[in-house]
Design a protein around this nucleic acid. Structure first.
Lengths: 227, 227
DNA sequence: CTCATGTGGATAGCGTAACTATCGATAGTG
DNA sequence: CACTATCGATAGTTACGCTATCCACATGAG
């Protein structure tokens, strides 16, 4: 186990904790108090740490995700749904089980958006509720200007979704349709993709901000080295 | 105060807590133990709750954000930076103060991306580090297919960033350049925009997934009503 | 005038999440 | 055979976001 610990830069107590929580499958027993861990455990720990540290998933969600990955009976499509739910509930710990929006305006805008773009999406898709909440907040805060950005956001979402699916397809081709490979891409892409998109958004925002309001010379304390 | 509480659907003890934490400015005193709260307090509470509940900011970050909003000396551009830092540190609670990536591959890819697209961005932009972490994770997990999606993500980021800045400009025009109006848009757009983008991404993913792998009839337990 | 109710201010407590520390009974290792 | 490591269990720790309680006082209905 200490090998596994050094290989993954994870303290032993944490590994034990992950074992308890079902994030990590048990090693192969060689005696009542000894077990052998292999490559699969290393990869699993790396995946789990990426989901938690980089993707920001709570441990319990990560456990759901990995257990879904292991179930061979689930179609890839369903695994996507589980990953989506996991990563969505990180950002929006919805209070009520079945939350009713105060006005429903956000939800209406989202439904109209889907219709406008011909998106075929289940009504229960967690992203729809999430987006609707944001729009409700925009309305409540009187941010009409931001509401007008909705279609641009949808364009962007289509762009990344197509890229995501292309990545899944590419992995599928490379592995000749191996399910676990494709599921891996779906999980990692769904969970970490949010963070990637958010990070790039910050960079693009700064770039766009400098282009539009060219007055960057106020922060003299930091290097003006452009990236 | 109970008025404020009912107007914002927030328990009184929570309002007191927000006052303590500097999220809410004190009311105008009418006597040693009485204060008058006005519209600005209602708006502030709504904003704070949106940042925390919808945007997922920790209370401490939200406090930084609102204090930056109130400082009239800061240019709008710097407020954007503060908002970016606040929302980034939510998703990536970076352990070390100055974190060095294990390999630096992710950072190199990001720098190349910026150069390729001509993005002028400070090296310290929190989004760059965030994106670099994700790419490092992709590399560590052997997800080359996802690395190839990077440019599509950058395209999408440009799209939303342009829309964000357009919203700021629109608000600026409507208010004839009123600083607080523009700052409001920047804060709300930066913090909640992530959630909106993430939500729409889920919907677009499901749509794209159904288009590419048309086998949706396995989840009989849920309504197949398309949105 | 009085007294229940509400207020602001301070301090302490609670519940969850994610670890972290310790313990006891072994089990390989030099 | 001493010594470190392991497994499993239980308990403790830290951080966060509230929530509860207490107090002295201030209104305002009766």
């Amino acid at each position: 186990m200490s090998e596994l610990s050094t290989a993954t830069a994870t303290p032993v107590p944490t590994l034990k904790f992950y074992l308890r929580e079902g994030l990590l499958h048990a090693g192969e027993r060689t005696s009542p108090n000894q077990a052998q861990y292999d490559e699969s455990h290393i990869n699993r720990v790396r995946l789990v740490r990426a989901l938690i540290d980089v993707g920001g998933l709570p441990v319990a969600r990560a456990a759901e995700v990995v257990s879904a990955m292991q179930r061979d009976d689930l179609p890839v499509h369903s695994v996507l749904g589980i990953a989506q739910r996991a990563v969505t509930e990180r950002l929006a710990p919805s209070s009520a089980p079945e939350e009713e929006s105060p006005s429903g305006t956000g939800r209406r805008l989202i439904d109209e958006l889907c219709a406008r773009r011909g998106w075929r999406v289940h009504r229960e898709n967690p992203g729809l509720a999430m987006a609707a909440r944001v729009l409700d907040a925009y309305v409540a805060l009187g941010q009409d200007a931001l509401l007008e950005a909705l279609d641009a956001y949808a364009d962007a979402a289509e762009l990344v979704a197509r890229a995501d699916l292309a990545a899944v397809a590419a992995a599928g081709e490379r592995s000749r349709g191996d399910r676990t490979e494709m599921v891996d891409v779906v999980i990692v892409g769904t969970v970490l993709g949010d963070a990637l998109a958010a990070g790039l958004r910050r960079a693009a925002q700064e770039h766009a901000s400098l282009e539009r309001f060219p007055a960057p010379d106020l922060d003299h304390d930091r290097q003006d080295t452009p990236c």
